[in-house]
């Protein structure tokens, strides 16, 4: 199986995005990559038609398992953010769904005037507030006892981008 079919006869172009890893963050490596692409999209560093770095290049620069990069790219593709073009690579298709500015403002207002106010009234300081919020968020995001079956499928290499 050959992931990057391109022959290495040309200099790698300046990458559209430079990934970095925080090994101690506890976030799975592939998710770190996904988040960084999403973040770059939100900030406009990546736009439609940009090519993501080739798996080989990401792997060589970060010294990580190619399967991890493949998994991240597959995840992005499943989210509809990217599309793989056989023999060429992975390209940005769309931006992540951004929430409208109006809706954002409303949500923020409800948070400030509602929960945050209650927390302050209950005597929580800033750190306590953050800790509680993060714990609740984690609970909300992944009910822990439902094992992360998402990780089971599609992990095998060979179901490559091409």
């Amino acid at each position: 199986m050959v992931i990057d079919k391109e022959v290495d006869d040309h200099e790698a172009p300046v990458p559209s995005i430079v990934f970095r890893l925080e090994p101690s963050s506890g976030v799975p490596t592939y998710l770190q990559l996904v988040h960084q692409v999403e973040h770059a999209l939100r900030l406009g560093y990546l736009t439609h038609g940009d090519q993501l770095p080739r798996v080989k290049d990401v792997v060589a620069s970060l010294s990580i398992n190619p399967n991890t990069v493949l998994k991240a790219y597959r995840d992005l593709e499943q989210k509809g953010l990217t599309a793989g073009r056989p023999g060429q690579g992975t390209f940005i298709e769309a931006s992540p769904e951004t929430v409208g500015l109006e809706r954002l403002t409303a949500l923020r207002r409800s948070l400030v005037s509602g929960w945050l106010k209650d927390a302050a009234a209950a005597g929580l300081d800033e750190q306590g507030t953050v800790a509680l919020f993060m714990a609740a968020l984690r609970d909300f995001r992944d009910r822990p006892m439902q094992s992360r079956t998402a990780g089971r499928d599609g992990r095998r290499r060979g179901e490559g981008v091409a």
């Binding site: 199986m1 050959v2 992931i3 990057d4 798996v55 080989k56 792997v59 060589a60 620069s61 970060l62 010294s63 990580i64 398992n65 190619p66 990069v69 290499r157 060979g158």
Partner: peptide
Amino acid sequence: HDFMALVMAAVAASG
């Protein structure tokens, strides 16, 4: 880092 990068890049290229 360099050693494993070499391994990983080769795996990416040849599988």
